[in-house]
Amino acid sequence: MTALSKSWERAVVPLFILATWEVFSRSGFLPAALLPAPSVVLHTWGDWIFGFDETSQGNTGRWLADALSSATRVAAGYGIAVVSGVALGIAIGWWRWVERTVEPTLQMLRPVPPVSWIPLAIIWFGIANKPAIFLVFLGAFFPILMNTIHGVKTADRNLIRAASMMGATEQQLLRHVVFPAALPSIFAGLRIGIGAAWMLTVTAEMVAVKSGLGYVLWDSYYFLRYDLVLAAMASIGLLGYATDALIKVLMSAALHWQHGSTLQSREG
């Protein structure tokens, strides 16, 4: 009951916006092509996904393929960023000498916006998946790295003492104490990183790749198909939301111990 009424509460604002938008578009205040009504967008989107009447022309029925190629780039770039960001972050946070030798360089690269790498990325990798993956990596890497470093540095020294009292080697300390202690902070980085990853896939696809949701978005703009532009925007938003929700689920599974009030585990 309450869950149902809560989901209604959540739907009120979007429904209101959609309804107003629909009425506004149909009133003829603006040319219909400039601001397609939600119903029109939905229709085009439907055709893009299921291919029933070719309103989306060449894109008809190709949504899944487009979404998959964007998602693959996100997964590849983000995956590389997660592995390297967490590993390097732990090394920088733990060993002073790594921090001294590596960190200044990274801190200098960090303020350079990932998009400004596009020209070099195209020269190095050509027009295909690779420059997009590279950009996604750049966007996700730094938030993950910074948050991992922070998590390691703020790990409780007393827990490290407790573990070494029980005979932990340095490697065991990193694995059994430092990593779990840094995990809340790492997850914060992962969530910022996934947002950056979607942003940069779409940007890369608008410039350097000939497939994916970002490409459809930009291509439709050239063909004045604003209904498709909007459908692409909605698709990206939806996928970004879904991946973030997935990370949130992983996070609450991995960090369930943080909630002092969990009742799931009584008796042994």
Partner: peptide
């Protein structure tokens, strides 16, 4: 250096918060 031949009970318990009691 520290080692498992000397067990220490700390002034604060210093338990790993992500692990259950056992």
């Amino acid at each position: 250096g520290p080692g498992a031949d000397r067990g220490m009970v700390f002034q604060q318990a210093n338990l790993m918060p992500w692990l259950p009691v056992w």
